[in-house]
Amino acid sequence: MGDSTGDGTNDEEPWDAAAALVRAAQDGDALAMDDLLALVTPYVTRLCRPIAPVDWADAVQESLLAVFRGLRGLRDPQAFYGWVRTVTVREAVRQARRTEVEQAADPDDVARLAGLLSDDGGELSAQVRDVLSRLPVQHRAVLVLRELEGLDERSAAELLQVAPGTVKSRLHRARSSFRKAWSR
């Protein structure tokens, strides 16, 4: 459920369905809430795995709790998608920071970072996984937002609550670390 537009908006069908479910869930419809949870969980999981590779399952659960805790306060159901992304990335970063020893992300998730890994595709070398695992969590979050979600620098910076220049430099360093390892 990625998107290709710079501002992160998405007109794919499942997210159109989400707006109606959001309204019903906000009215206390538990079955709609259950459907919404089923719809959003794969997306939340896809965001959490590369950012919090060790504790991704906890990151998913914490993100879902945060999303549904705040659901009634969401004024525009059409904004659900972007809002879920914001809440999830922040929760995943928080969760990853709790883990002292960071480990490698799942190669399948990393492989989806298409912009960086389109050269060969296929299996990642242990070396590349090691490099990814050594990236600070904020760098991994930038990679996910820019390469997986296709957000522009300004949107990624807003979401991560940092200056656009910080996103730019983090992305540059993350890409550079990655490419060095990849080309070895």
């Binding site: 206390g28 538990a30 809430m33 259950d34 949870l37 659960q61 879902l64 709790l65 805790r69």
Partner: peptide, 10 residues
Amino acid sequence: ARLRVVATGL
């Protein structure tokens, strides 16, 4: 875990 999320939402 799923019911915990629904309980939070409700």
